[in-house]
Design a protein around this nucleic acid. Structure first.
Length: 376
RNA sequence: GGCGCAUUCGUCUAGUGGUCCAGGACGCCGCCCUCUCAAGGCGGAGAUCACGGGUUCGACUCCCGUAUGCGCUACCA
């Protein structure tokens, strides 16, 4: 029957063949052991109005709805019946569900009416959409909470971010703690159109939340991400676990304002734990050559060796003085030192970084850099 | 195909008839700060409020139509 209807370009629907069966015919069918379902006899004409608190009145022609099944042949109720009965028994006052349910709402209104029950306040809320403008779903390429968690997104940040898709407090406030959100949230301010979730903005907001953390908490929450297996994004296997909390805390204090997710931490700070390979060309800054760089680093080594205490406030003036003496640009000298001690072009501020790295490790790395430049 | 919902900067949104030649945020660009990267500060570009008709002294805001997007069209929810 269905195929026939589709072929004729008619809406596929139930032909209501059993709606008008007499009591005798029904009894005969039952006696014959015919399989059966219970369908809801929709009014044949008129319309059903769904009053939605967000969308207003939505009306549907009853003729467009066929006699839908409320009890399946296995004896179990369909969602339509179960939902109304269950909600009524649970004394549900507000019904909030995604907007794709709007189409079946008139059926529910009819069931409520047939049972003589008062429908709750109904809110059909917008969906969170993917880039394809379709509802975010696990079936598609939607990230699950688990993947967010593995990447190091903070629950409070994701919570805050999600709250702002389809809802807003006013024209400027957008950072809310969970408690604040619970306090200021109002159903009236839920919007009607779906919103595409923007990964960039989530990352930004996560960074905001990371920066708000106390160093202690930031460290405690980041440590597990760093200690996880290398293959999962943790530090190289050669670095022994567990990590020292205090040292890691000092390391992370330098990265807190730079991270957008906790998962990025390991890659950003691994050089604080182990010596890493890097291209020697990184040592040579713009306008410099191997010889000049080597000479400069030798003087840096000597200046650092002469310091009584290993403190960035002591190091900085001494190195600045060296910059003046050598006539080099700050970027040239500091860039070389940066590369020597970290093996990277971008790092936290040099002096605090060297302080955390410690005298022994810093000195050894500078010596190593000097040695590498000597052969050239 | 039928029915329904939606439509303000690239994105999330503010806005309920005049205070909007449309405000905030992310992103982008520039400047400042600065040893790099960030963070922060300042500024900029970016929306004929989907389009077309009405209603009104006046429409982003109300009504109608069109387009587009999405949803539903199961003995699934």
């Amino acid at each position: 029957m269905r195929k026939e209807q589709i072929a004729k370009k008619l809406p596929p629907r139930y032909d209501r063949c059993c709606r008008y069966l007499s009591a005798e015919e029904r009894a005969a069918n039952e006696a014959a052991g015919l399989p059966w379902t219970v369908r809801f006899a929709m009014p044949l004409d008129g319309e059903t109005v769904v009053h939605d608190e967000l969308h207003g009145d939505i009306s549907f022609k009853n003729a467009d709805n066929d006699d839908f099944i409320i009890l399946k042949s296995d004896g179990l109720p369909t969602y339509h019946l179960a939902h109304i009965v269950d909600d009524h028994l649970m004394k549900i006052t507000h019904l909030l569900r995604a907007e794709e349910w709007i189409s079946s709402a008139p059926r529910h209104i009819q069931i409520w009416r047939a049972l003589g029950w008062q429908p709750p306040l109904i809110y059909h809320v917008p969906d969170v959409l993917g880039q394809d403008k379709k509802k975010l779903s696990k079936r598609h390429n939607a990230p699950s909470w688990k993947t967010f968690q593995q990447q190091g997104f903070l629950p409070e940040a994701v919570f805050n971010f999600l709250a702002l898709i389809g809802w807003s407090f006013d024209d400027k406030t957008e950072l809310f703690t969970r408690e604040e959100l619970i306090h200021v949230f109002s159903l009236e301010r839920i919007g009607v159109s779906g919103g595409i979730y923007d990964a960039e903005k989530l990352a930004w907001m996560n960074g905001v939340y990371i920066r708000k953390l106390s160093l202690e908490e930031f460290t405690r929450r980041t440590l597990p991400f760093m200690e996880r297996p290398e293959a999962e994004g943790g530090l190289p296997a050669s670095i022994s676990r567990p990590l020292d909390f205090d040292y890691t805390s000092r390391v992370l204090s330098l990265e807190q304002e730079r991270l957008r997710t906790l998962g990025e931490a390991a890659a950003a700070v691994s050089f604080f734990y182990t010596d890493e390979e890097f291209d020697a060309s990184l040592l040579i800054q713009k306008g410099m050559d191997a010889g000049k760089t080597r000479a400069a680093l030798v003087r840096v080594r000597d200046v650092l060796a002469s310091l009584a205490t290993w403190d960035h406030e002591v190091m900085e003036p001494s190195i600045r003085e060296l910059i003046n003496e050598t006539g080099l640009k700050a970027g040239q000298l500091l860039g070389s030192i940066r590369a020597a001690v970290s093996g990277r072009p971008h790092t936290p501020p040099l002096f605090t970084m060297m302080e955390v790295l410690g005298r022994e490790r810093t000195t050894r790395r500078i010596e190593h850099a000097i040695a590498r430049l000597t052969g050239q």
